[in-house]
Amino acid sequence: MSTAVPSAHAHAEGGHTPFLQHHFREMSQQFDAAKIGMWLFLVTEVLLFGGLFVGYGIMHARHPEAFMAAHHHLDKTMGALNTVVLLISSFTMVLSVWAAQTSRKKLLILFLLLTLACAGTFMVVKYFEYSHKFHEGLLPGKYYSHKGDTVPGQFLFFSFYFMMTGLHGIHVLLGMAAIAWLVWRAARGHFSSAYYAPVEITGLYWHLVDLIWIYLFPLMYLIS
């Protein structure tokens, strides 16, 4: 049985920042809790996408020819471009966490804006890809109206393509909103080495979005 560990000394240390919530004893406790919370949330995200990955895997195994034939409608170059854009955005995101950790306010804002720019580029490329698919009638489910398919069931691939990239796209948009909010707070000077949990956990979220794309890219664009 452990005895009492008084932690009163922590109060003095955490007390000076206005961001310590009343129910935490010290900043590090609040920071760790926020990180645990975020990681748990990321696990739920992994399992949410995981459901689609499992469905994709099983349908792929059921209709290999259809998936093979359908994936040729995707443009590898566009996919690779978006992969690179997202990887760079992850890099700039992690640099903004570093800037916050080392209290470099201007760099923090710069890197956050660069991340936003990359995310924007990603969405623009996605927009062109989507509109191209729409144009060709490569729509999900019953709206699939592409002519000249040699293998039936290709619409199944596009059902997954749109559901998976669509859900991913929504996550990118949410991430952009979160990063914009960070920019707003950073400009007000909220973040420093003493308090940067929001930057850190938004970064974690952003990297997960990147990580999911890392798997989506080969599964969608590169199957052979």
């Binding site: 399992l47 689609l52 349908m59 999900p140 489910g141 019953k142 199944l156 059902s159 559901m163």
Partner: peptide
């Protein structure tokens, strides 16, 4: 969550899974 979304997709888009 994803299962329920798939039912919605099935009903709205007929995705076929």
């Amino acid at each position: 969550g994803i299962t329920l979304l798939l039912i919605v997709m099935e009903r709205v888009l007929g995705v076929g899974i």
